[in-house]
Design a protein around this nucleic acid. Structure first.
Lengths: 207, 207
DNA sequence: CCCCGGTTAGTAAGCATTAACTTACTAACT
DNA sequence: AGTTAGTAAGTTAATGCTTACTAACCGGGG
């Protein structure tokens, strides 16, 4: 209840955890060091014991998020079986589940991009671009196998991710009230079907 | 060169114009009133002659953007002809052209959403949701005519817009270097084809 | 045409507060 | 005893906003 002193490591981690929450809610310039200190339950000076500047703390939380977030792993098994639907559904559900449950990573990412933070490129490259690339690779493979139309794999991968991410962003960042949280329509499988078959009622297209 | 005095209206408009630029670059809490004043070329007090508070100025620029931006009009002619490809291509190109050329509206929108500004709901509802709804209406029509598969029109419209917007956001907000500005691949028609036909190489699907 | 009074654009200087960061210290653990 | 967690109380520089003032414009009476 009242641990008089914490070890340095623990306190540092606690500060980072708290800072992640607050920075993701308010962005860099909207967040005050005092606010973080209060939330942690220490004095403002305590923050500066561990992080020389606000920037340094911000960098630390970006690093941390970049390290801990990407549990993304491409669904290799489904890919080996050439089960396109399941490949994309797994990816979609992973993204939906992760970011709908905890939007802090997405918010940090968008804030950092808008506010022009340098580290963003690192995270973006390491997390987002890498995932897009592995999706693009699978698409390229399936194009070569004539299972997919001869599209630009990279653009197609981005289009797929775009449908998913935009849906998430509409809900958790724009809080769009017109997207009802009707669980009867599973957005994941819906978007995957759309991506695979298109909206046109071509002959023989039914899932 | 050196107009000693401007009329109130003109000056007010000039302040709003400048403020749009700076707020869209740095967000609300990242923008300082002094900075706007300097950019306009007047003293800081001059700003407060026209706008009682920074918030009021911010509201004014949101209003302005909301008023001037939505020249969006649904491609009625193409819709009447049931030229699905052209309907969606027109929408895609409109979005691409507008926001790639001048990202300030998108940046303002995302900043406002992240920073939790109230007016965002108004703009979002008036601009984005309305457009999605008119697209959804067309989709619903085409579903009834059995030209499209029996999808949820609203979700499908969002998916389409999502592909487009996400592409734009990747370029102008995240400045994704892996999206080459190769003009040989027209993203608009590519994404529309993908939306209509899907990526699967189903029988008879070729544009 | 010019002076004159009222209005309006514009500012210099300052005020109150706040935000990031320091310093000099205390007290807990080893 | 020495290191380390932690803080009270600053300091400095913004930052949003105000006040009290100046000077440019405008319209009308002489």
């Amino acid at each position: 209840m009242c641990p008089l002193r914490m070890t340095g490591e623990d306190r540092k981690n606690q500060i980072v955890d708290t800072a992640i929450r607050i920075f993701s809610e308010k962005g860099f310039s909207g967040t005050k060091t005092k606010e973080i200190a209060d939330a942690v339950g220490i004095s403002e000076a305590g923050i500066f014991k561990y992080f020389a500047t606000k920037e340094e703390l911000y960098s630390a939380i970006i690093d941390r998020k970049a390290d801990e977030s990407p549990h993304f792993k491409f669904p290799e098994k489904e890919a080996r079986e050439r089960n396109d639907f399941m490949v994309f559904l797994k990816i979609a559900d992973l993204l939906l589940k992760r970011h709908l449950k905890d939007p802090s990573f997405l918010r940090l990412l968008y804030f950092a991009a808008l506010e022009g933070h340098e580290l963003i490129q690192m995270v973006y490259g390491r997390y987002y671009s890498k995932n897009c690339r592995s999706i693009a690779q699978y698409i390229e493979l399936r194009v070569r196998e004539k299972a997919f139309s001869p599209v630009d794999p990279s653009l197609a991968a981005r289009a797929f991710v775009g449908m998913i991410i935009h849906y998430i962003v509409s809900r958790v960042i724009f809080k769009d009230p017109s997207i009802q949280s009707d669980p009867s329509v599973e957005p994941g499988s819906f978007l995957v079907k759309l991506f695979l078959h298109g909206i046109r009622n071509d002959a023989g297209v039914r899932s």
